[in-house]
Simulated assay, not measured.
Amino acid sequence: MTNALVGLSHSPLIGKNDPAPDVLGRIDAAVEDARAFVREFGPELVVLYAPDHYNGFFYKEMPPFCLATDAHAVGDFGSTAGPLSVDGAAANELARGVLDRGVDLTISARMTVDHGFVQPLEVLFGGIDRVPVVPVFVNGVATPLGPLHRIRALGTALGEAAGALDRRVLFVASGGLSHDPPVPVLDGAPPRVADALIEGHPPTPEQRARGEERVIQAGRDYAAGVATMMPINPAWDNRILDTFESGALSEIDGWTVEEMAAEGGGSAHEVRTWIAAYASLAACSPYRMHSRFYEAVPEWIAGFSVTTALPEGQR
C-alpha cells in the first residue's frame, strides 16, 4: 500500500480576476511544487473529494456525501466539460469497502460535477481524462450539514478500503478554506430560485453566463473592499492547517457547523473535503505534511492553500 495526499483550494475566479503578480507568482510556485510531488509519486488512482455548487446535487435529493462510478463535468466558468476518466471497477470496490465498514454511502452511476472537481484535475494533471479517478462528492453548501465526525468516518473507511487495492492511491481534497461567496440558499429564497435549487433545472447558456458574471463582479467588489461578504480569516485557516499538520484529526469532531460558518463564512464547509482526505491518508498509518502553502486572495474570494502529505517513512 502506497498513499499520498494533495489539498488544493479552488476558485471559479482563477484566470478571471487574478491578484497582483507577486501574489500570483507565489501561488504558481506552490502549485508547481504540488505538480512535481504528484509526478514523483506517480499515482495509479486518484480519490478526489470535492464539493458541488448546485450544478450536480440539489435539494430534491441532497446526500451528505456520494461516490461516483461514472461522472461528467458541466464546464462551468470555462472549466473543461465532458466525461471524467472514472475507474468504475475501483469505484465499486471502494464503495463496497466503505459500506462494509459501517458508513452509509450514496452511489451515483451518473454524477454531474463542476469546477470543484475539474480544477484540481486540470491543475495537477493537465486534464480530466489523464488519470483514473474515483470522484467523491462532499456537501459543503446545502444546509442542514451533518456532524464532522461522520466526514472523518467516511474518509477513514475509504482510506482503509483504498489500502486493500494494492495500488498507488493519491487522495486529493478540493475546496476551502475560509470564503463567503454569493451562493444561493434555500431558506427564504424566492419561488423561482427555490424551485431551481430543489429541482435542479439546468440554466440556459445565457442564464449561466449572467450568473457567472455576477460571481466575477462580486470578486472584483470584494477585492476593492466594497462587498458585504465576510472577510477571509487567515487565523482560522491556519488553525485548520495546524490541525491537519499535527495529525490530531479527532479534534475536528468538536467543531460545529455554526462555529465554522461564523469563523470562515458560508462556504468554509468545503473544508470537509480536506477532513475526508486527511482521514483517508491517516487510516492505515501516521502521516507527515510534506509541504504547506497559504495565501489570502480576496480577488478569488478565498483563503487559498496547497498542501502535500505522505505516510511517515515514505519518500
Rank of each mutant, 00 (worst) to 15 (best):
M260S: 00
A309Y: 02
D87Q: 05
A30P: 04
V113F: 08
P181Q: 11
S178Q: 01
I128P: 13
C284F: 02
P286K: 11
M260E: 00
A235S: 15
A95E: 05
S11Q: 12
D87W: 02
P12K: 10
D221H: 00
V183L: 07
H290R: 07
L249Y: 01
H10D: 06
G155L: 05
I107L: 09
M260G: 01
A189F: 15
S250A: 14
G225Y: 04
E270G: 07
H115T: 01
V38H: 10
D187K: 13
P64F: 05
L24E: 12
P43Y: 09
Y278G: 02
A142E: 01
H201F: 08
H201D: 10
R292I: 00
G159H: 05
G175P: 09
S285K: 03
P120I: 05
A71G: 09
I232M: 11
R239S: 03
M230W: 10
L94R: 03
G78M: 10
W255R: 00
Y278Q: 02
H269G: 04
A296E: 14
R96D: 13
A81L: 10
G188K: 09
R130F: 11
T308E: 00
V38G: 05
L165A: 08
Y49I: 03
E61G: 04
A29N: 13
F65L: 06
A194V: 11
V185L: 14
Y49N: 06
L94T: 07
A20F: 12
T69P: 08
R96E: 14
W236V: 09
D187W: 14
T243L: 15
V98M: 05
A248E: 05
G211N: 13
F171W: 04
F137S: 04
L249Q: 02
F137V: 01
A164I: 05
A209Q: 12
E199D: 13
A235N: 11
P286H: 04
G200Q: 05
H115K: 10
F57H: 00
F41I: 00
H149N: 01
P43H: 08
G82C: 15
I107Y: 08
A227L: 13
G116D: 04
A235V: 14
V123T: 15
P19T: 12
P19M: 15
E251T: 04
A227T: 10
E160T: 13
V193H: 11
V169E: 04
G75Y: 04
P190F: 13
S108G: 03
E299V: 11
V172L: 10
G175H: 02
N3T: 02
D52Q: 01
A142L: 04
F37A: 09
R272Y: 01
Y294W: 12
S246L: 01
P144D: 06
V185A: 12
I27D: 08
L249E: 00
R239T: 08
G211W: 08
P83H: 14
